[in-house]
Nucleic acid binder design. Structure first.
Lengths: 183, 183
DNA sequence: GTCCGCATGTAAGGTGTTACATGATTCT
DNA sequence: AGAATCATGTAACACCTTACATGCGGAC
């Protein structure tokens, strides 16, 4: 996961590990975080795999500049093109980089994602109806208020995501400047 | 984390590992998942720590019934009473069990949580204003549409959480039937 | 000259997943 | 009889966090 995020950040241009961390915190930081303890080993790994290239900047500190290699770019775009899932906010992370994905694939992915969300929403609504009916039969419904409220939260946040995705689908088509068609 | 969830589930009554898993999937499953590979070792651990008690049900299968011990209940309630944070949905998990927390502590936690959310919301709105101004100066704003949209999502989902928490705060007070005052 | 931000890295530990391995019971 | 579900558990691996360790450069 962190590997693809790093590659995605490096799509912007060469950067040091420290800068990558700061960029992550300031951009995707709202739903994804990286620590140096995972970042630096990841950079080392990616370098060994020839997906990025790290070069020492002689400049005083032992700062290194990491540059995305074509193979790394391919790997990133392949990850980006995978279908969206709602495991652990992977969806948000991918959509953040979706300007790099070609418009047609992007449309398809958003389409099936919103379909998936609608399915979940229907399901949750059905669950809520059942739960509501069961709740009426309880002597003390108030004793379960918080338990029940998470269902409400689930519904509301699903609605929020769905609305947002549908707004994305309304966006005028814009072919990526740096992305490609592959995978 | 999984330890506290298990303890929370066992507040309802004795259950087998398999039942705990199913209960988790069907209740908090929307934002938390457990695998058997983490669940069974956790049960073993909790048993060794004398927080739960597992007893073989002679009844045919090699099924075990796990019962919450008073020490486990204390540990769970202590976890529950900790302040809410927004790391990895821990907040949702805790609030799900909030009917077990005494009303006064609950009120305090929800209060400071919504304050925290409001702070984040103000911050994100400030960020968006800056970003909006910077966006106007770009030649091709459309090229960053998805990148920018995650900010919108962040705002909307923050608003959704905040509204929901504020609704919770309006709930009539209900002292927990099984929870306590401690810690 | 001291503190803060920049800069990189390692080691230990925590936490979880996937895949594997096994077997009983219930439903059709 | 066969399939699905119930039921428990281990081993390998993935992945990340925290704490530690080190040092440069600029600001005040």
């Amino acid at each position: 996961m962190i590997d693809d995020v790093i590659l995605g950040i490096l799509m912007e241009g060469p950067m040091s590990g420290y800068d990558i961390k700061r960029t992550i915190d300031q951009s995707v930081g709202f739903f994804y975080s990286a620590s140096f303890g995972s970042l630096y080993p990841a950079l080392k790994r990616l370098d060994e795999q020839k997906l990025i290239e790290g070069e020492e900047t002689g400049s005083s500190k032992n700062k290194k500049l990491y540059t995305l290699r074509p193979e790394g770019r391919d790997r990133f775009l392949a990850w980006l093109a995978e279908p969206l899932t709602r495991a652990r906010n992977e969806h948000m992370l991918k959509i953040f980089f979706y300007d790099y994905l070609n418009a047609e694939l992007r449309r398809g992915r958003l389409q099936s994602f919103s379909g998936q969300l609608q399915g979940e929403l229907h399901h949750l609504r059905a669950v809520q109806e059942i739960v509501d009916r069961e709740t009426e039969e309880l002597e003390d419904p108030g004793a379960y208020a918080h338990r029940l409220s998470v269902l409400t939260y689930g519904l509301r946040s699903l609605e929020t995501v769905l609305n947002w995705v549908q707004d994305l689908q309304q966006l005028p088509v814009n072919q990526p400047s740096k992305g490609t068609d592959e995978s």
